[in-house]
Design a protein around this nucleic acid. Structure first.
Length: 463
RNA sequence: GCGAUUGUAGCUCAGUUGGUUAGAGCACCAGGUUGUGAUCCUGGGGGUCGCGGGUUCGAAUCCCGUCAGUCGCCCCA
């Protein structure tokens, strides 16, 4: 039979035990932070109808997707490049039965047919958290007009801040500091109103926002030329060039943030106790057309954006749901892992393997030929108590070598069976290396089962 | 989609101006020694030099193509 060697597809990565432990560690942080911020976990299919993504992003998106048609089928599908359309579809299907607001998160793998480079792969894992709806019910509000609008505006800002606070919670959980990363935010309404004040025609706003978005990559003189063409000049121009402005508790030092919408978000961020992590940044615009309010990115020096998100009030309706405001973000594993690695914040391989339960509780060693047959029954008994028990597959009878193997595997304890399988000693490998006196093997097994009783096993019905 | 750069054992790398059966360390396996937590000794398996084609008496070494990695552009939901 002819043999053929294969490589993993471009932009994908094989996950060996340590790689998987590292990814599980990251996802577990995402999950815990989401949960304690009151988000519930959901997931959807890994592929969707191709039209779902065309609806949201237009025909042009297709070249960025892995799309396919089943042989003999007539439907076009695409591996999911993002979660938002799935989320919108799921919400729309049960909108009337869901609480307001609904807070959902998802961690899963996503696929984009882009050229891989630093911080970007074709298959990656992404964390999404979204708040759909507001904590007010407009239909039940008695107020009219301006008063009602004000209440909705406040609720909108609260939800924006909840999402940003969740992102900040993750950064804290993995040991990042405000010096390492910042959430930089802006507000579409604030930009639009400010442009209006500066005399930029409304139909030019989209074009100017695109230039602001690209400002970092442009030479200052090119930037000036570009925005001047739309009427931006004088003070307005210098403000646009300034970039990030730190929000201060004692006031609003910059023309951009005197806008009512930005102020409301700022107040809510204060209530969420995350202001040290947040900066106002005029250059955060986000290219996507569907963002309607707050937009933000998590940025670290020298990396592409760690996370990005914003408010998309029209999208649920686009997917067949009732008109529903929503805000959310996505955070990928690739950039975050790069950042944590550079900052020395990833646990060591040993720590990860131990956390992931890949290190044995007990390594069973048969000391001497006459005890050789006892290792496997001993392992079986320990496993029936829920312990992670292993024995060597090597043929050596050398106790020293076997103890060395136990240590390399990170075993917490070794069970040394002697005396033809009748008695055993327990040696603790992690702590002091202390070793017990010989005892009957049944007693040793019971002692180990008691000491390493698993506490986090999933519930099960034993009959 | 475009550009630059790299590709020799599981890992880190040597391989002289193209010249005999391609090397080292670590890792792995086995045997011995020491009841270990970077012990020591001995031995072993493993590479068609990313893949394909070409030039040549002869290529890991030169040329072309292709695949993959890395970095950048585009894009970034």
């Amino acid at each position: 039979m002819a043999s053929k060697s294969f490589q993993a597809p471009n932009g994908t990565q094989d996950s060996y035990p340590i790689d998987l432990a590292r990814r599980r560690w990251l996802i577990e942080h995402w999950r815990r932070v989401s949960t304690r911020h009151g988000f519930e976990e959901i997931d959807g299919p890994t592929f969707e109808h191709l039209d779902v993504y065309k609806t949201k992003s237009g025909e042009g998106i297709v070249s960025e997707l892995f799309s396919f048609r089943r042989a003999g089928g007539k439907d076009d599908y695409a591996l999911r490049p993002e979660f938002t359309p799935t989320l919108a579809r799921m919400y729309a299907a049960k909108a009337n039965a869901l609480p307001k607001p609904t807070k959902w998160f998802c961690t899963g793998n996503f696929f984009r047919a882009e050229r891989p480079q630093r911080g970007r792969r074709r298959e990656f894992w992404q964390w999404n958290a979204d708040v759909i709806g507001l904590d007010v019910d407009p239909q039940q509000m008695n107020a009219e007009g301006a008063e009602k609008d004000a209440e909705i505006a406040e609720a909108t800002a609260r939800m924006d801040a909840e999402v940003i606070a969740c992102v900040v919670g993750l950064m804290q959980a993995v040991g990042l500091k405000p010096e390492d990363v910042k959430v930089r935010f802006n507000h579409r309404e604030a930009i639009a109103d400010w442009l209006q004040e500066q005399g930029v025609e409304e139909e030019s706003h989209t074009a100017v926002m695109a230039i602001l978005d690209a400002a970092k990559k442009m030479k200052p003189e090119d930037f000036v030329t570009a925005v001047s063409a739309f009427g931006l000049k004088g003070d307005g121009l210098s403000v646009a060039l300034k970039g990030p402005q730190h929000l201060k508790d004692d006031g609003y030092p910059d023309i951009w943030i005197v806008h009512a919408a930005t102020k409301r978000v700022h107040r809510s961020l204060g209530a969420a106790r995350v202001l040290p992590w947040v900066e106002f940044d005029a250059s955060i615009v986000r290219g996507l057309a569907y963002y309607t309010g707050t937009v933000f990115e998590v940025i670290a020096d020298g990396e592409r954006a760690v996370a990005g998100g914003g408010r998309y009030d029209g999208l649920i309706e686009m997917f067949g749901g009732p008109p529903t405001p929503a805000v959310g973000f996505g955070m990928g594993d690739v950039v975050l892992t790069n950042l944590l690695s550079d900052k020395g914040l990833l646990p060591s391989d040993d720590e990860l393997m131990q956390w992931a339960g890949q290190t044995p509780d007990v390594f069973v060693i048969a000391a001497g030929d006459d005890a050789a047959e006892a290792a496997r029954p001993a392992c079986a008994q320990l496993r029936s108590h829920g312990l992670h028990a292993r024995h060597s597959y090597k043929s050596t009878k050398n106790v020293g070598k076997l103890l060395k193997e136990a240590n390399q595997l990170g075993a917490h304890a070794a069970l040394l069976i002697e005396d033809g399988g009748q008695s055993a000693k327990i040696k603790h490998l992690k702590s002091d290396g202390g070793e017990s006196e010989p005892m009957p093997i049944e007693q040793a097994l019971a002692q180990l089962a008691d000491e390493f009783r698993p506490v986090d096993a999933p519930p099960s019905k034993q009959r």
